[in-house]
């Protein structure tokens, strides 16, 4: 018995001279959320389209919900739900008509499809809007309907391709809540996102994708550890001190600090938390730099991400 709900090995896809996927490997354990993280054009959407049978890969193998993608695409389709980048619902029909339609296309009898539609409308807080055409829905309502439409048969594996792109913060948290509820019920979720806080919020594991390949994978916490542990942030009083302070920090920590000139902030990765803090502050006092504030913190996923995609670029160039 496989415990991985999604397994991909060496997936490749080429468009002309562009390698959209250049040997993508992925393993998502059942019942977990995996976040595919990467810049535009990294191959996230291509990976989702292949794993949902919409695109044929040029090479590689994959199993979704235990079914071979190429040999049994029908069985894969029966086991997955897909929420693509567009809210793929019928604008003219009402929310209820949409969900009934997708239920019928899952071969539910008419009555059962209607009952399931009402259940989903209720669960996603759309009962009041059930008989209104979707063209009048807000962005968040559309997304929730889209999500509901992909859950008609409660699929064990759900794919979400940038599910909150273009949504306002409130609608985003609505979608996040819906995803959390699904995961609590045992659904496996593969989610692509450009928002790092989204992966941080939802994902058990993160796979960072760059140039069609997974360049790092693991829990968000582990990824943060891997790129050099904690960071030391220094806030200065005077812009005139910035360059001098950065030089002192670099010399003391033997690492390259990043300098934010408008916020008067210097940030540097530190291995040994307390000693580094003491050494840096001591050196700065010695140089008579006026420090306004100081903080030790975990790196953000943004920093992990920039660092990782940056290194792979320098390596490939």
């Amino acid at each position: 018995m496989h415990t991985a709900a999604i397994e991909a090995e060496g997936l490749r896809k080429r468009y002309g001279d562009t390698h959209a996927l250049a040997g993508l490997d992925l393993a998502v354990p059942a019942g977990t959320v995996c976040g595919l993280l990467g810049p535009n054009g990294a191959g996230k959407t291509t990976a989702v389209r292949i794993l949902t049978t919409l695109l044929r890969p040029d090479g590689g193998r994959a199993r979704v919900a235990g079914h071979d993608l190429l040999r049994h695409p029908d069985r894969v389709r029966a086991a997955i739900g897909l929420v693509g980048q567009h809210a793929a619902v019928d604008e003219v029909l009402t929310g209820r008509q949409n969900l009934t339609l997708f239920g019928r296309l899952h071969h539910l009898p008419r009555r059962a499809a209607q009952a399931r539609a009402d259940e989903l409308l209720d669960r996603f807080g759309l009962t009041d809007a059930a008989t209104r055409p979707v063209s009048g829905y807000s962005g968040g309502m559309r997304r929730r309907l889209d999500l509901a439409a992909s859950l008609v048969l409660a699929p064990p594996v759900l794919f979400l391709d940038e599910p909150t792109t273009g949504l306002d913060p409130r609608a985003r948290s609505e979608v996040w809540d819906a995803v959390r509820a699904l995961v609590a019920a045992g659904t496996t979720v593969l989610l692509t996102t450009q928002y790092l806080d989204e992966a941080d919020q939802l994902a058990d594991t993160v796979a960072v994708v760059d140039a069609g390949r997974v360049v790092a994978a693991g829990s968000p916490e582990r990824l943060k550890d891997d790129i050099g542990g904690d960071r030391l942030d220094l806030l200065l009083h005077h812009a005139a001190d910035l360059d001098r302070a950065a030089a002192v920090v670099a010399a003391t920590t033997a690492a390259t600090p990043s300098v934010d000139a408008t916020a008067l902030r210097i940030s540097v990765p530190v291995g040994d938390r307390v000693n580094a803090l003491a050494a840096v502050l001591h050196a700065l006092r010695h140089e008579a730099v006026d420090v306004a504030d100081v903080a030790l913190r975990r790196p953000t996923l943004d920093e992990v991400f920039l660092r990782l995609t940056d290194t792979t670029r320098t390596v490939t160039v």
């Binding site: 949902t52 049978t53 029908d74 693509g84 793929a88 604008e91 296309l105």
Partner: peptide, 13 residues
């Protein structure tokens, strides 16, 4: 254009 065709293609229909 709206992705509805893709949704159909991802269904076991």
């Amino acid at each position: 254009a709206r992705g509805v065709t893709d949704r159909f293609r991802s269904l076991p229909m």
